Simulated assay, not measured.
Amino acid sequence: MARIKASTLEDLNDPFEFNTIALNHPVMRSLWKILRSDVFGSVGVFCFSKSWRNPVIWSHYADNHRGLALGFEVPDENIQKMHYRKTPLRFSSRTLSNPDTPEAQREILEAIQKSSHVKFKHWEYENEVRSIENKGELIEDDGRFFKRFGEDLELKEVIIGAASKLSSSEVLSATSAKPKIVTTRLAFQTFSVVQQRTRALQK
């Protein structure tokens, strides 16, 4: 079964995920912690990069360039663009102290929506977009959550890392799809990962 694993609130590698609100009072921070858990504890997050050319991404997420990158086609309406900031979002503590008013509920909803696609500026190298889905719509397997490849998650290409020992034929034998296979190398004149176009050196 071709599927991709969702990240959950508990295993995201950024401790500030969905926690990008600046609150200056401990009671308000406790309230936000509860709200964060209630809202985002029930979702799975799929994180994608818009480009595979950054060598830092390969070092952090693909076993030091020995792994693979999967290129998916995802409908635009399923994708959130990430926004990167030097400082957390500002939010009035008074809103959380009076959460039942229409104005407060509107502000809380806006804060939740913004928090789902804001990260610290130093994550900007990831060039991330993401898809967020309810766990109830995903496949649960031993406490983990997955989404099947399909029309709204179509595997289009597999990019082989510059230090990978895998061959194109091995990659193709592992999937029933027929993705484009891209062999990569390190660029000669820039700090980037590029496609290996010399046929004899392709994997």
Rank of each mutant, 00 (worst) to 15 (best):
D63Y: 08
E140R: 07
D142M: 09
S7A: 15
S116V: 06
L9Y: 00
D142Y: 09
K135C: 08
L9R: 05
L109R: 15
T8V: 10
G136N: 11
P55G: 01
I21E: 00
T101H: 12
L68R: 06
V193H: 02
E133D: 07
G44E: 01
F91S: 00
E157R: 10
S7C: 07
S192Y: 08
R199I: 10
K156L: 07
S115A: 11
F46G: 01
V74H: 01
P55E: 08
L68N: 00
L96Q: 01
L186W: 01
R185D: 05
I108F: 06
P102I: 12
K114D: 11
S168E: 15
G71Y: 00
P99I: 00
E157A: 14
S42G: 07
S192H: 09
S173I: 11
G71S: 10
T95P: 02
S131I: 02
I4R: 02
H25M: 08
I108W: 04
V43D: 02
L153D: 02
T101K: 14
F18I: 02
Y84M: 09
A2H: 10
C47M: 12
L70V: 02
N24M: 12
A104G: 03
K147A: 12
K156D: 05
K5P: 06
S49Y: 05
T101F: 11
M1P: 12
T190H: 13
I112Y: 00
S97Q: 13
L186Q: 06
F145H: 03
V27T: 13
E103K: 11
S59N: 09
P15S: 03
F16C: 05
V74N: 02
K114P: 03
M82V: 14
E103A: 14
K147V: 12
T184G: 01
V74Y: 04
V129D: 00
E157G: 06
A62H: 04
E133L: 15
E137V: 10
H83W: 10
A6I: 03
P88H: 07
P102N: 08
H83D: 12
Q113S: 14
N13L: 05
S49G: 07
V39W: 01
N98V: 12
N134F: 11
S51W: 05
L166T: 08
P179Q: 06
F188Y: 15
G67V: 01
F18M: 05
K86V: 14
V45P: 02
D76K: 10
H122Y: 14
S93R: 10
N64P: 01
